[in-house]
Nucleic acid binder design. Structure first.
Lengths: 342, 342
DNA sequence: AGATTCTTTTGAATCGTCTCAAAGCCTGGT
DNA sequence: ACCAGGCTTTGAGACGATTCAAAAGAATCT
């Protein structure tokens, strides 16, 4: 193993370990001659500083953990990218962990991050109220909730999901739809529940134009396959009972749903309109460009890590903050047709 | 900070630190009574093992780094997912790093990973021949190349990109196309160069049916926007000079390219056929379902980390291996029309 | 030359955990 | 009562870097 220590460098440069450490951390206080000699030794030995030892001594890591619900959802990739950009500027590393919406995996990741004494954790929790999170933060690891509003005393960055749901459903109602499917689940995930609640409220409010209803297609996961399955279920209904529009809790579902429509020969938006959520880049490129509720993805990530770093450096006088962004609706082909009653 | 050490646990449980350590690492050699007392103390104090100190002592981390060219390309998300699944089984963490195809960022990430003394590095390098990689591995950090064949003596997992390029181009030639655009770049990225070379070879081989040619649309990056730009460029050509088909170096490009076609009113596949690469899930869901060269994405990740872990545990008697998978072509709407000459 | 500063360099202590030789404690045999 | 041999437990080093009080050297001033 070619891994050399500061001691060997010191020996070769004929100085003490303290001096080598100084060269590494405050080169300006070391005389130029010595400094050069030490650099020379470092080069010659191929010395690489052991961050682990440094961290042990200093007591503070340069790594933050980011735990997301689904790495392969481009929404989270974008959030991660936003966060990473900021982390980079503070030369901090990011560990990206995938909980796959499984509380057990989430717990394992949190355990590991805590054991590593990371600087802090950004997390889109499976369950924001989980005691594990409170515990983590109580024990001294700052936690920032991402895409999920904080219940307890912690920082969080979220987008108003109720509003998003409302926007989507109101739009569909306004386009003349009276029976609207909600595709999403599990409802234990806050985002899903909120989007559902928002949609539900919007549909109820439309009661003025009497009798609009939201039909739930609850599903167990949030991927393309689940969306397709829900689409199949909907397509199998007799036309009289079939919703004329679907609001999907995210774009992956919407994409899958759209595939099912085309497989079953239903036209979008004429037979069934679709609105997705997140406005990932692929939404606009879909077979039928998808209407979607847009969220500021990178900004979400950026803001989250900024809050975290702020919390770390502020120490005691840190005041937790809950940042909430507003989503907006992007209308595309998939919901453009106007429904003239049923 | 509520972070307690093994020493405090020892004190509370009235045993020595050695015993606490034993309880943690080899509970079976500790008497049940003592063990229970220690566990009790751990619980009471909320003790969390300091992995950093452990690592310093043991000299070996439980983290591997994965450096990819673009986190927001679903292809890499899938590779990461495959790798993570295996890492998980060996309770090893993964640090996902994004080089964004920038050698400078890549270097920084490698520096940091080396300083952290990670168990090893999985990397899709910007430049597989970079001396930094050889150096890393020479200094004792195992490196496995992902989606890129090893030049020097290291492990690698790749897919035969020449073959992939050949399949794509041969398919287009066989469909009657004689002037085929290649959209991709920079050619300094091995995968792009190989796909190009394969396509080039296939086109040349078709010379039997005289005069097929490959027209390069070299671009600087591999995202949707670059694909769109290339599409615009192609669409701007007079019909007589315009390629009737495009082979894109990845699906993001293909998706962007497709968008440009529809913006410019060119029909796919009638006016321009498209073949992408990677077969990400979104390819099938595109406006016109995309033909694409499929790669075993998760398998790539799984295999890479398996090789890495093997190398770590085998130590000296490890023999480097270069694994190569075969891609295959998935034909969909975007290339289905047959061209009856031009 | 001697006193006084200022600049450099030193080296021991420390962070939290693991390891391992040595010490302690038991049990049973004689 | 004494000892051999099997469990348990102990505690003194590592591991590699940082810190900081103190020592050593240089420079400046009387």
């Amino acid at each position: 193993m070619g891994t050399r220590s500061i001691k060997e460098v010191a020996q070769l440069a004929r100085v003490s370990v303290g001096t080598v450490s100084n060269v590494l951390n405050r080169p300006e206080i070391v005389s130029p001659a010595t400094r050069e000699r030490v650099f020379e030794a470092i080069r010659e030995l191929g010395f690489v500083r052991n961050e682990v030892a440094r961290h042990l001594r200093v007591g503070r890591s340069r790594t933050v953990g980011l735990v997301v619900l689904d790495v392969s959802n481009p929404f989270f990739a974008d959030v991660a990218q936003g966060a990473e950009a900021v982390a980079d500027e503070h030369d901090t590393m990011m560990m990206l962990c995938n909980s796959a919406a499984d509380p057990e995996r989430e717990r394992r990741h949190l355990d590991q991050l805590e054991q590593q004494r990371v600087l802090g954790v950004l997390i889109t929790p499976v369950d924001a109220a989980s005691p594990r999170l409170a515990q983590l933060s109580a024990r001294g690891t700052p936690v920032v909730l991402v895409d999920s509003a904080a219940a307890g005393p912690q920082c969080s960055v979220a987008v108003d999901d109720r509003l998003g749901g409302r926007l989507a459903a109101a739009h569909l109602v306004e386009r003349g739809h009276r029976r609207i499917a909600f595709v999403g689940g599990p409802l234990s995930i806050k985002q899903v529940a909120d989007r559902h609640a928002g949609a539900s409220a919007a549909v109820a409010a439309a009661v003025a134009g009497e009798g609009a209803e939201l039909v739930d297609f609850e599903i167990a996961s949030l991927g393309v396959a689940a969306g397709r399955a829900a689409g199949e279920r909907l397509a199998a209904l007799p036309e009289s009972a079939r919703p004329t529009a679907a609001f999907c809790a995210n774009d992956l579902l919407a994409l899958g749903f759209l595939q099912a429509m085309s497989l079953r020969g239903l036209r979008v938006p004429e037979d069934v309109a679709i609105v997705g959520y997140d406005d990932i880049d692929f939404a606009a490129a879909a077979a039928v460009p998808l209407s979607s509720v847009r969220q500021p993805r990178e900004l979400l990530g950026r803001t989250a890590i900024e809050l975290l770093l702020e919390e770390v450096s502020a120490g005691d006088e840190h005041r937790h903050r809950q940042v909430i962004f507003q989503p907006d609706l992007v209308v595309r082909e998939s919901s453009k047709a106007v429904r003239r009653d049923a």
